[in-house]
């Protein structure tokens, strides 16, 4: 079974078409990257898949469940990390993980979940400080820990490392890569073409609401005889 099956997906905000009919599959266990410039429609696509927005047209299945009719079921198996997200400022990092884990009571073991979260976040004793005292990198780590601690079948991560310095970004990429080895499928977006090349098994180049190219980074580089994905992108949109 495909982890994600998107067929001719459309999304309009009023009169404005943000996603103009995109089709792609994400295989189980892989890291799939949506890459493209700002305003290409990446966040819109991920929000649709995360059951946050209503689709205007097309069809989406996540692990065989239909997005339109089975959103509550889908929410049990996905986790979504918004771009530029924050956590509740008056909670400590640990309290935040515990708060989120509580929603899975009956589905999964929240104690195990928090334990895993703490390992991923790896903030030592700062975990018991208020979130408002965290640096950007620490906050992002906390949120990545939150998104991965429930061992979702599909993790949807928007702009995974945007705004982070090189060291923090690399740390977070490593965390995400490790998690996929444990069975989580990852769908991420980035406007950083180099990052995607480092992380993704397959990528889709998206521009102006349409997918322009799709394949493994290696395939695409060969096809356009380019040195890196950035050059591929420039070729594609030309």
């Amino acid at each position: 079974m495909e982890a994600v099956k998107v067929t001719d997906l459309h999304k309009s905000y009023g009169d404005f078409q943000a996603v103009k009919g995109i089709t792609f599959d994400v295989h189980e266990g892989e890291v799939f990257g949506l890459i493209g410039p700002n305003g290409a429609g990446k966040t819109t696509t991920l929000r649709l898949l995360a059951t946050l927005l209503e689709i205007t047209g097309g069809k989406v299945e996540i692990f065989g469940k239909d997005l339109k009719n089975e959103a509550p079921e889908i929410r049990k198996i996905i986790s979504y990390l918004p771009e530029d997200a924050g956590a509740y400022k008056n909670m400590t990092g640990r309290q935040y993980l515990e708060f989120i884990a509580g929603f899975f009571i009956g589905e999964k073991d929240p104690v195990e979940m928090v334990k895993r979260g703490l390992e991923i976040v790896n903030l030592d004793d700062r975990i018991d400080d208020k979130v408002e005292t965290y640096s950007k990198g620490m906050a992002r780590k906390l949120l990545v820990g939150r998104a991965l601690m429930m061992e979702p079948k599909l993790a949807i991560l928007d702009e995974l490392t945007s705004g982070l310095d090189v060291v923090n970004a690399q740390g977070i990429r490593r965390i995400v890569r490790n998690k996929t080895r444990e069975g989580t499928t990852v769908l991420l977006s980035s406007h950083n073409m180099l990052e995607v090349e480092l992380m993704c098994d397959r990528i889709a180049l998206i521009n102006d609401g349409r997918i322009m190219e799709m394949g493994t980074p290696k395939e695409l580089k060969e096809k356009y005889s380019a040195n890196n994905i950035e050059d591929v992108f420039v070729e594609v949109v030309r």
């Binding site: 929000r47 995360a50 059951t51 946050l52 509550p72 929410r75 049990k76 996905i78 986790s79 979504y80 990390l81 918004p82 771009e83 530029d84 997200a85 924050g86 956590a87 509740y88 400022k89 989120i100 929603f103 899975f104 589905e107 939150r146």
Partner: peptide, 15 residues
Amino acid sequence: KENKTLETLLTLPVK
């Protein structure tokens, strides 16, 4: 909304 915590809440398994 500004902190996107609402988005997180809405993707959790809670009605």
